[in-house]
Design a binder for these strands. Sequence first.
DNA 1: TATAAAAGTTAGATTAATCTAACAAATATT
DNA 2: AATATTTGTTAGATTAATCTAACTTTTATA
Lengths: 222, 222
Amino acid sequence: MLSYTEENYLKALLKLSFQNEEKPEAGTNEMAAYLGVKPATATDMLKKLKEKDLVTYKKYGKILLTDTGKKNGIAILRKHRLWETFLYEKLDFSWDEVHEVAEQLEHIQSAKLVDKLEEFLDFPEFDPHGDPIPKANGEMPVIAKTLLAELKAGDTCSVAAVKDTSTLFLQYLEKLQITIGTKIKIIEVIDFDGSLYVGIAGGEPRSVSMKFAESLFVQKLL
Amino acid sequence: MLSYTEENYLKALLKLSFQNEEKPEAGTNEMAAYLGVKPATATDMLKKLKEKDLVTYKKYGKILLTDTGKKNGIAILRKHRLWETFLYEKLDFSWDEVHEVAEQLEHIQSAKLVDKLEEFLDFPEFDPHGDPIPKANGEMPVIAKTLLAELKAGDTCSVAAVKDTSTLFLQYLEKLQITIGTKIKIIEVIDFDGSLYVGIAGGEPRSVSMKFAESLFVQKLL
DNA sequence: TATAAAAGTTAGATTAATCTAACAAATATT
DNA sequence: AATATTTGTTAGATTAATCTAACTTTTATA
């Protein structure tokens, strides 16, 4: 049985492994920063996780999840995203409110609960932020991720997921009435600062910053 | 902010206060036994709870919840019973499965979650075991509790709640197809051993033990 | 390549919750 | 009332997760 804290470390390592496609390994400081603890604390926990065969790592080396570690991490991610979906769809939580509560709910231990919840939600494939929800067997659709910033003038796309899940960004999206599935047309790319002039769901054209365009995953439409 | 453990102590004290109507105060050993810890541990925690003004107690004296302590305890009970209702009604958990998971869910911190959950469940008044669910303001219907064992031959009643919530008893009830609201008619009281000869929902008459009759709360019907 | 900077580790301390063993107080019994 | 039993407390230790401060290793840079 994993402790609440151990689970958080595994989830963090999994998330970090997603962040840098090429290299799924993480560093102690990186991990500590992600979890909001000091590096010394992370080192200690790493030893424990290694003892339990959840990570491979040696002193001053990189950290990598073992198969078991990854399996556990994915199970937690699955719970997190199912709960987010529940909060958003059934309890009318807003986009930016779901995360904090799901952080707690993801640690509830009950295999039956997770599976029943999934069934109750009618086997959703994506959470409210557009991220894929792992299946009970650990499978997880890998989606080609295109940033809005990668598109060119004339392209049209549909919002697929948010890269930045900060409250500030999510609330800004809500204000712009952008949600998963919203259509965006790139009218012009401003080379000077990388900002885009876009049409959102056929509305009045407006400008969005490069930072904005790099925080949104989209699916290019024909 | 209360810790997970502190919350459990408050809930235990509240439950114990319900158990003995007349005297709502509890003893150290009683409380330790209820929580499955050693008396020494309970004493330590008591000091902490006193420090936080959640209980009144002095050395070798009885333990009593303060108003704040009671308010907190009721809030936890409210969450517990709402979650039990959710599991039972929405996720098809059985009577005897809900408790264990609700024990975990009751510690999730989010006022919004509780209130939204209550709304989602359409403001239920009783949980699956027939116990009243406290309202957001702490109000809780106090129901006159009659034991099945108190009735006489010829009486008819409707099952109101279970006193014993052990898995064994709940599964036995399920086997007998007894649930909240089931009608029971007392055909005969066997003075020899206190057992009852009863008709359950108009079915074949059968005998139930005194222990059984003392584990079920009912509402007498005219 | 030598050194400075960054990254990571160790040692020692702290806090919360728990335990055991020994002791003290209150209650019950003869 | 004296004593035995039950009930409750204290002291000291343990474990998990965290910290700070000092130290070590690796990596980057002049």
